[in-house]
């Protein structure tokens, strides 16, 4: 009964940054509504001026699902992921915030397990992990897996972060915690996700993990080249000396 009361009081703001995701954003909104039935939530779409008409699709979705459930908070041009979360956060009315990618590599069907884990443990952050039983990745070749494992072992050995998946970006935060952590993060891209979780861990926030699967984007491609590896290593050193 108490648990149910808590669930009724909680509101979840799901922040989805987009750039040229007109098809994916429609699919993801449908799937969120399909899988989150008895929960109070809002979807905040931060679109960085996509030229492909992402915002038109979002407006159509607002007609279907209601403007109070889907908020479009666009920005004029591409301004980066970190600031997209800050921008979305300003408009969030929930006491919990979920951040997820719009490219369907994060499936909304895992949202209930994030919420349940948070309620069961009282954690400040629940982070999705691909590297445990029940989780997994699809669509990576051997090279991609090797880099990912290497990067992970390096980070685990040097940083002792206490979480198994540092660069995943499917997470649920208590809103006040996200506001606190995000204000001290300066990195970009992959490293941004790692910096967030490492700083949160250092600040002593209670972090829990749930398994998720990651299906690499179906449309378009995500590459991990030499420059990303250099950026990652720089980020690792940066975190070593600043956290």
């Amino acid at each position: 009964m108490d648990e149910q009361n808590m669930q009724e009081r909680n509101k979840y703001s799901i922040i989805v940054p987009t750039y040229n995701e007109r098809l994916n954003i429609a699919l993801i909104v449908y799937l969120i509504f399909k899988h989150l039935r008895e929960v109070d939530f809002e979807i905040i779409i931060v679109d960085d001026g996509s030229p492909d008409g992402t915002q038109d699709v979002v407006k159509q979705l607002q007609q279907v699902y209601g403007e109070d459930c889907i908020l479009l908070r666009a920005r004029p041009k591409k301004l980066g992921l970190g600031t997209a979360y800050i921008h979305g956060l300003k408009h969030a009315s929930g006491n919990f915030v979920v951040i997820m990618d719009a490219d369907l590599s994060h499936h909304p069907k895992y949202l209930p397990s994030f919420i349940k884990k948070q309620i069961d443990t009282g954690a400040s952050i629940v982070t999705g992990t691909r590297y445990v039983k029940g989780g997994g990745v699809h669509g990576w070749n051997l090279m991609r897996k090797l880099t990912s494992r290497g990067a992970n072992v390096l980070a685990q050995t040097l940083l002792w972060p206490g979480v198994s998946d540092l660069t995943g970006s499917f997470r649920l935060y208590r809103k006040s915690v996200l506001e606190d952590v995000i204000s001290s993060c300066v990195s970009k891209g992959y490293v941004f996700q790692m910096e967030m979780i490492v700083r949160a861990s250092r600040k002593g926030y209670h972090i829990e993990e749930v398994p998720i699967t990651f299906v690499d984007r179906l449309f378009g491609s995500s590459k991990l080249g030499g420059s990303e590896i250099v950026e990652y290593l720089k980020g690792l050193v940066y975190l070593l000396v600043t956290t």
């Binding site: 989780g135 990745v137 699809h138 494992r149 072992v153 699967t213 990651f214």
Partner: peptide, 20 residues
Amino acid sequence: LMVGVGLMQFPTCPQEALLL
């Protein structure tokens, strides 16, 4: 060793792509 073990036990989920 850790990279090798991690690589061998790398969890994959081909069925998830079909479900998606």
